[in-house]
Amino acid sequence: GEIFLVTEGDDEYDKFKGEDMIIKPDLHLDMEYKHVLRVEKVYINSAILAANSPFFYKLFSNGMKESVQQHVTLCVYESEEDALIDILRYIYTGKLTSTSASELLTVLIIADRFEVFSCMGYCSRLLCKL
């Protein structure tokens, strides 16, 4: 499967960065993404994600729209984008690229949101070592 990562502006009053916005023509967004900065396409294996996170497990199976779609959409703020990518990488490799405290904090928060509990633990340990 694949994930479209829709990145919104962090702030409603942020400058609209039109040139960064990538929207595939076949992408039907039900929600009104007013401040879409860009859309990234990330290829993932739903089983691996589901095994590492209750959120993804439910996302792919609970009987709503995403359960039957080949591609699902996650919507995050710009400041969260790198952290989410890093978490997805963590799920596959067991490692994070983020090193600074603020980066790791963001990772921790996003991991909490998407219920990647093993990453939360890993992240907390890294933070303690700083």
Binding site: D30, M31, F55, K58, L59, N62, G63, M64, K65, E66, S67, V68, V72, T73, L74, C75, R113
Partner: peptide, 15 residues
């Protein structure tokens, strides 16, 4: 009518 709903959107809102 649950099949028309977006889990991600609802979860995000509740979150």
């Amino acid at each position: 009518n649950a099949s028309g709903l977006s889990f991600e959107e609802l979860y995000r809102n509740a979150y």
